[in-house]
Amino acid sequence: MSQSPLKPEELTVPVPGGDLAVLRWPAEDPQAPTVVAVHGITANGLAWYEVARRLAGRVALLAPDLRGRGASRSVTGPYGLARHADDVAALIGALGSGPVTVVGHSMGAWVTALAAVRHPDLVRRVLLVDGAVTFPLPQGVREEDALAAVLGPALARLSTTFPDREAYREFWRGHPAFAGEWTEGIDAYTQRDLVGAEPELRSSCVLEAVQADGAQVLLDEDAAAAVHRLPCPADLIWAERGLFDEPQGLYDHERIGLAGLDPERVPASPVPDTNHYSILWGEAGADRIVRILLADALTAG
């Protein structure tokens, strides 16, 4: 019987600055392929709960809490996307599971692409979910204004305290991207983020880490170039709607076209009726991710 998605195994892997916390959902077959899943900028490893539930032990799934988040919040800086990519490589190497498929959502997609470029011997394939493609800032838009627009809502949450766990549930229930869609997985994911004691609970995310990583998502040249330099097969899928369920998502056909991706090397396609979060949590998005991962697992086998 595979481990419950709600209670995966918890491991640690030594990295510079501390021990990285890793969630592991083992495979039914010890010979099954391994997938490493990388979460977004203010998330944690339980962001992959719904994908793990649908995989149902057909592959081994490893999902770290990136440094400065979740149970890895005490892993010290420096932060940055390349540091996270090297942490992912350390995880693969420490568990002797490489080369593997790596899937990343949002900021995790940039980390995934960088891991493949920096450690091609450890990454055999990547799946990029609503991330990894960077666009130049529009003319006249200042870097600090762009950062404020992208990180503002996240930083406000990180600066807020909550009197109890139910208050944090209600905070997330009110998020437009989660409207009408609350599951045990979303609940477990959001509760994993809380640290401290009542009545001053707060997000586990380290402010310095989020600021450093967010700046690199927008501005780092190596991170922007990684998706164009991938040394392995890749797929990119994107959500039709945005972070707050707004009609315009991060990507669309025009933006993907302007990005200059090689469609032979990085085929890209939308997932209908998804937003930036539901592409990971909802039925349509999680099913698409699982189908791609399982198809790849068959070729790996």
Results as ranks from 00 to 15, higher is better:
His84Tyr: 11
Pro176Gly: 04
Met107Lys: 02
Gly98Tyr: 11
Ser159Met: 10
His105Pro: 08
His276Leu: 12
Ala284Met: 08
Val88Tyr: 08
Arg291Ser: 15
Gly196Tyr: 04
Glu9Asp: 14
His253Ala: 12
Thr299Asn: 13
Ala259Asn: 04
Glu246Asn: 05
Leu127Pro: 10
Gly96Thr: 07
Asp65Met: 12
Gly45Met: 01
Gln248Ser: 09
Arg192Glu: 06
Arg58Leu: 13
Arg69Met: 07
Ala94Ile: 08
Arg53Trp: 06
Pro5Asp: 00
Arg169Ala: 09
Thr190Arg: 05
Ala209Gly: 03
Glu166Lys: 08
Glu181Leu: 13
Gly40Arg: 08
Thr112Gln: 07
Gly180Gln: 00
Leu280Ile: 15
Glu10Arg: 15
Leu127Gly: 11
Val129Cys: 06
Pro153Tyr: 03
Val38Asp: 12
Glu143Cys: 01
Gly301Ala: 15
Tyr168Gln: 04
Tyr79Lys: 08
Glu28Asn: 14
Ser269Trp: 15
Asp296Glu: 15
Val206Phe: 01
Leu236Phe: 13
Pro26Asn: 09
Arg165Ala: 01
Ala47Ile: 11
Pro163Val: 10
Gly282Asn: 08
Ala234Arg: 10
Asp296Trp: 15
Glu208Thr: 14
Arg241Asp: 00
Ser72Ala: 02
Ala188Leu: 06
Val266Asp: 02
Val35Lys: 04
Ala85Ser: 00
Leu147Trp: 04
Tyr49Pro: 12
Ile92Leu: 00
Ala27Gln: 07
Ile279Val: 14
Asp86Met: 09
Glu200Leu: 05
Gly68Pro: 10
His39Pro: 07
Glu143Val: 15
Pro64Ser: 06
Thr299Ala: 11
Ala239Asn: 00
Glu170Phe: 09
Arg125Asn: 14
Val206Gly: 01
Gln216Thr: 03
Ala154Trp: 04
Glu9Gly: 10
Val35Pro: 08
His175Trp: 09
His39Gln: 09
Gly77Pro: 01
Ala177Arg: 06
Ile237Tyr: 02
Leu127His: 11
Asp65Gln: 08
Cys232Phe: 05
Ala60Ser: 14
Arg255Tyr: 00
Ser4Thr: 15
Gln248Asp: 11
His175Thr: 04
Arg24Ala: 11
Asp287Val: 14
Phe135Gly: 07
Lys7Leu: 10
Thr183Trp: 09
Pro176Ala: 00
Ile237Trp: 04
Leu219Cys: 00
Glu10Val: 15
Arg67Lys: 03
Phe244Ala: 13
Ser203Thr: 15
Ser278Gln: 14
Val123Asp: 08
Ala300Met: 14
Val133Thr: 03
Arg173Pro: 05
Gly301His: 15
Val123Pro: 05
Ser159Trp: 05
Leu23Asn: 12
Gly40Glu: 07
Ala226Val: 01
Gln211Gly: 09
Ala47Met: 13
Val117Gln: 00
Gly68Thr: 10
Gly108Asp: 02
Leu207Cys: 11
Asp187Gln: 09
Ser203Met: 14
His84Pro: 03
Ala37Met: 03
Val35Tyr: 05
Lys7His: 13
Val13Asn: 03
His253Trp: 09
Thr101Phe: 06
Leu219Gly: 00
Val22Asp: 07
Trp182Cys: 00
Tyr168Ala: 13
Gly108Val: 06
Gly249Trp: 01
Val217Phe: 00
Ala225Ile: 01
Val150Asp: 12
Leu261Val: 09
Ala239Lys: 13
Glu50Tyr: 04
Leu62Phe: 12
Glu9Phe: 11
